[in-house]
């Protein structure tokens, strides 16, 4: 290639001979490393950058020379090949230019040439990190539970206050369902907290799959969950509760065998003709959940079953 064209490339390009010595060094590299082509010529990367110890680069060059085709060194795994300081990026935690490296060969034996291209990908890393910030803000959303991404207790109360007024005005029922994973502490003790967390996550997913879009699924705390179903009568809510209990028993949550995780549920109904306060509604659902536990767990109690 015409050397002047080679110097116009917006990426770093060098060519090495079969013994890994630099035979070409473009303008980009000179600008970023302050090493002139004359100085680089005839030297290996190890000689030019004495602190550079990169066995993976050496192997990739070997592999390319031995007929393995082009090789890449990703910024994810290596960050960079040649140390190039980018001072104003230090505050982003990126003191050095991130590089995507591509290695290709031409020719054979002693005439072989290794073409190493270095592409600056620092800006895309910055973009990704900006997206990470947004994602993390979502994670920390005040209304969400960080583990399951369900709504949290605080949101349940806010939502109930609002819906309570609406339901009274437009006279529609609201079903409240309290659910609890049976013997969750024993699961945690036996399988560890990592599995415990995954059981919670899988259970949360199962709950969201069993309800309508307008319904609210929330983690109330620990292994306790709440589902609020506006415009839903007692029979339908009981049906939903029984299906959740049944599905939980059959499912493999957190990779545990089906049947190892069960849940109990209590369902209460807000009826505009005989209205309960929001706290009474949840208290009633909780009382029935307690009855389901007392009656042997793995079941739903949908009306008063006080013996």
């Amino acid at each position: 290639m015409d050397t002047r064209l080679f110097d116009l490339l917006p990426i770093g390009v060098m060519a090495l001979d079969a013994r890994r010595r630099v035979v070409a060094w473009n303008q980009w590299l000179t600008e970023h490393t302050s090493i002139t082509p004359a100085h680089a010529s005839g030297r290996t990367l190890g000689e030019l950058f004495p602190n550079l110890i990169n066995p993976r680069f050496d192997m990739a060059v070997d592999q390319a020379l031995q007929g393995g085709g082009p090789q890449i060194l990703s910024q994810t795994l290596h960050h960079y090949l040649i140390p190039i300081e980018v001072p104003h990026l230090v505050r982003h935690g990126l003191g050095r230019m991130r590089q995507h490296v591509h290695i290709a060969t031409a020719g054979h034996g002693d005439d072989a040439r290794v073409l190493v291209s270095i592409i600056d990908v620092t800006s895309s890393i910055l973009k990704i990190e900006a997206l990470t910030d947004i994602a993390q803000r979502l994670e920390n959303d005040v209304n969400r539970d960080p583990l399951t991404h369900l709504f949290n207790r605080r949101f349940v109360w806010e939502w109930l206050e609002h819906q309570h007024k609406q339901a009274l005005r437009y006279t529609y029922p609201i079903a409240a369902m309290m659910l609890d994973i049976d013997h969750f502490k024993a699961i945690n003790d036996r399988h560890g907290h990592l599995i415990g967390d995954r059981v919670l996550q899988d259970f949360a997913r199962l709950l969201t799959q069993k309800v309508r879009e307008a319904d609210i699924v929330a983690r109330f705390g620990g292994e306790e969950f709440v589902i609020l179903l506006p415009r839903c009568d007692g029979a339908l809510a009981a049906d939903v509760a029984k299906r959740i209990v049944g599905r939980t028993r059959e499912a493999s949550l957190g990779d545990l065998s089906p049947g190892e995780v069960t849940c109990s549920a209590g369902v209460a109904l807000f009826n505009p003709s005989d209205p309960l306060s929001t706290s009474d509604l949840l208290r009633e659902a909780d009382r029935r959940l307690y009855q389901a536990k007392a009656n042997g767990r793995d079941r739903a109690v949908c009306q008063d079953e006080t013996a």
């Binding site: 990703s74 910024q75 994810t76 795994l77 995507h100 990704i128 990190e129 997206l131 990470t132 994602a135 993390q136 979502l138 994670e139």
Partner: peptide
């Protein structure tokens, strides 16, 4: 978390 992991994962 989320989207960014996938970009890095694909690269690696």
């Amino acid at each position: 978390h989320g989207i960014d992991v996938r970009a890095f994962e694909h690269e690696a």
